[in-house]
Design a protein around this nucleic acid. Structure first.
Lengths: 213, 213
DNA sequence: GGCGTGTATACTGCATGCAGCATGCACGCA
DNA sequence: TGCGTGCATGCTGCATGCAGTATACACGCC
C-alpha cells in the first residue's frame, strides 16, 4: 500500500467540505479566498482549485467575479435528491444481494451492530457516521463503481441536512428499525425486500427532515 | 438577461472536455499542463482549475505529482455506467410523463423530428447531438434537478464511446426505431412504457458499443 | 551482460504579484 | 431630500516564479 499522499488541494477539499457539512460555513455564505486561505494555512491557489472541485460536486456555486458561495438548498431540492438516492439505492440493493460475498455482507452487519451500540448510548455523531458508511457500503457491494460515485456525490450534498434530522427520539427509533429490516433483507439476499425498505427509508427520511427546512 | 460571462476556466473546461470526447486527447494520455496551456492560449492556473473540475466529473484522473491523465474506461465501467443511466432514465421517464407540460413534450417531439431528418441524410454528428439533447430533455422534463445533474455527469463520460457506436446501418436503424417508440410513449404520457423502452434502449446501446471496447 | 544506483532534466504543486471588476459610499445636482 | 454618478477600496481572476519530486538515462559494479 502506497503511503498516503496528501496533495494540498485534496486536503483542502476535505476540510472545506467538512466545514460546510458542520455548518461552519453556512448556506448562502460567501467564501472569502484570502481569509479562508489564512484560516486553513494555505495560499489561494490550492484553495481555488478545491473550490472548483466542490463546485462540480454541487456544494458551492461559483459566481463570476464574485467567487464562491455555499450552495443552499430549497426543500424541493432536498426532496429531489432523496428521490434520486432512493432510486439509486434500490438499484444497488438488488445488485448487492446478487453480487456481494458472504464476507462483505458480514462486514455490513458489523457496521450495523456497531451503529446499534452507538444508538443504545445515544451517540448521535458516531451513529450518523456509521449510518452513512452502511449506505455507502451497500453501493459498494453492488460492484458498480459508477453507481457508487453517483450516490456518493448526492449523499455528500445531503449530509448536513440529514445530520440535523433524527432529533426526536421517536424518529430516531424509526430510522433504527428501518435499518434493522435492511440488514435482515441483505443477509437473506432478498433484493426486492431490500430495495423496498431502502425506498421506504428515503421516504421516511424526508418525513423526518422536511420540518427542519 | 445578463450578457454571457465567460470565465476563462469555464471556457477551458468546455474545450478540454470536447478534446477528450473528440479523441484529440486519447484515453490514458497524460495531459501536459505547460504544453496544453500554450495550445489553448491560457496560462497554467485556469487550466489546472479546469482539470480539477474535470477530475470531479470523472473524465480525468489526477495522479499526485504527475498531473492529469485522460481516464480510460474498461468495458465493465461502460456497462456499469449504462446500467446507472438506464435506472436514472427510467425514473426520469416516469416523472416526465406525469410532470411535463404539453408544450414541453412538443419541444421534444421537435428535437425528435429534426433528428429523424438528420438520420434520413445520414448526418451522424448532428444526429448524435440531437440524440443527446433528447435524452437530456427527458431528464429536464422530470423537474428533478438532482436527477438531471447526475444523468448529465454520466452521460458526458460516455459521450465519446457512444459516438463511436452506431457505425453499422442496421444498428443505427434500430436505435432510431427505439427513439420512435420513446417519443410515442412520452406523447401518450405512458410512463411505464417510456421507462421500459428507455431501459431497453440502454441495453441495446450496450450491444451496439461493446464490440468497440 | 544485467541490475542497481546516481544524477540531470523537466514537470507538477504552490506562492505571490498584478490587473480588472464589483461594491459601497460620498458628493453633487435636481 | 432623493436620486444619480463618480471614485475608492478590496476582492477575484490570471500569470508567473520557485521549490520539490518523478522519471529516464547513464555509469559503475557484480
Amino acid at each position: 500500500m502506497p503511503i498516503a499522499r496528501h496533495s494540498l488541494h485534496d486536503e483542502v477539499v476535505t476540510r472545506v467540505r467538512d466545514m460546510i457539512i458542520e455548518g461552519t460555513l453556512a448556506p448562502g455564505a460567501r467564501i472569502h479566498e484570502g481569509q479562508l486561505g489564512v484560516t486553513l494555512g494555505v495560499s489561494r491557489t490550492p484553495l481555488r482549485e478545491a473550490l472548483k472541485f466542490l463546485a462540480s460536486e454541487g456544494l458551492v456555486d461559483l459566481v463570476a467575479s464574485r467567487g464562491a458561495v455555499v450552495r443552499s438548498f430549497t426543500p424541493k431540492d432536498v426532496r429531489d435528491m432523496l428521490d434520486v438516492l432512493a432510486t439509486l439505492e434500490a438499484f444497488a440493493g438488488r445488485l448487492a444481494c446478487r453480487e456481494a460475498t458472504d464476507g462483505e455482507i458480514a462486514e455490513v452487519r458489523g457496521l450495523h451492530d456497531r451503529m446499534k451500540e452507538r444508538y443504545a448510548v445515544r451517540d448521535r455523531l458516531e451513529y450518523f457516521k456509521l449510518n452513512q458508511q452502511i449506505h455507502s457500503a451497500i453501493q459498494r457491494l453492488s460492484g458498480n463503481a459508477a453507481l457508487e460515485a453517483a450516490h456518493a456525490s448526492i449523499q455528500s450534498r445531503l449530509k448536513r441536512i440529514r445530520y440535523i434530522g433524527n432529533q426526536e427520539p421517536q424518529k430516531w427509533q424509526d430510522a433504527m428499525d428501518e435499518h434493522e429490516t435492511m440488514i435482515r433483507s441483505l443477509e437473506a439476499r432478498d433484493g426486492e425486500a431490500l430495495a423496498q425498505v431502502l425506498t421506504l427509508h428515503m421516504e421516511r427520511t424526508w418525513d423526518r427532515v422536511k420540518a427542519t427546512l
